[in-house]
Nucleic acid binder design. Structure first.
Length: 218
DNA sequence: GGCCAGGACACCA
DNA sequence: TGGTGTCATGGC
């Protein structure tokens, strides 16, 4: 095991010991996870939950139902998540893609090989690298690591990243240095988000950081 | 009242 | 290729 691999797993172990297994993603179905992945873009999860709750209460949390409601109505329902107009367009764009390419069936979509599917998702308006990878990992149970702003911030402060690397570079860094298992990919990202939400704000709190080992630059 | 939150995109140099 | 503005609500 290389030094890098040891450092990454040491950090994961500390987070796991502190927060416990996260059982991600919070969502009852693959479709709900996908909607959540779009709605959570630059948004606090608590607000996403309200938007998803609205969709569930109106019984439109399915590809067919979303396809059949107007973009304006959709925007109204997801309003609590912020950026509601643009997110309504993005959800509609995904639905359009799903029906055009896979007859509205997520099962068919996830039968596609991971690399090809990732490229397709990245061509859907409003689905960038993080959203695509969240969909692949958490909804499709594909072996891809999700990188987010917390990942960059935390591991830059730890000295393991420069902070200027591209999304793909950071993703490769993790996928080359942690065990290639879906469970690890799933929980490592979840732990990073837990740490980010609780400790690693732009104005960090070193005193309560579970991975502050003394060399921590946070 | 200001800052921040589990990004992505259009536009510009 | 990289930097900047825009999208917007809600909790602290």
């Amino acid at each position: 095991m290389t030094l890098c691999e040891k450092q990454l797993m040491n950090i994961y172990q500390k987070l796991y010991d502190h927060y416990g297994y996260q059982k991600w993603w919070p969502g009852e179905s693959a479709f709900e996870i996908i909607i959540g992945a779009i709605l959570t873009q630059n948004t606090a999860w608590i607000n996403v939950e309200k938007a998803i709750c609205n969709l569930a209460c109106k019984k439109v949390l399915s590809p067919h139902k979303i396809k059949n409601i107007s973009e304006q109505k959709l925007a109204e329902l997801i309003r609590p998540s912020g950026y509601y107009n643009i997110k309504a367009k993005r959800i509609k764009a995904f639905i359009e893609y799903l029906f055009t390419c896979y007859h509205g069936k997520l099962g068919r979509m996830f039968m596609r090989d991971t690399d090809s599917l990732r490229k397709e998702l990245l061509h859907v308006n409003g689905i960038g690298p993080e959203t695509a990878d969240s969909i692949l990992l958490y909804a499709g149970k594909k072996k891809v690591f999700v990188v987010d702003a917390y990942t960059r911030r935390i591991f830059s402060r730890k000295g393991l990243l420069e902070g200027t690397e591209s999304y793909d570079d950071i993703q490769k860094f993790f996928m080359n240095n942690i065990p290639k298992r879906i469970r690890v990919y799933n929980d490592y990202h979840a732990q990073i988000v837990m740490l980010g939400k609780n400790v690693c704000k732009p104005k960090p709190r070193c005193d309560v950081c579970p991975i502050n080992t003394g060399t921590c630059k946070i």
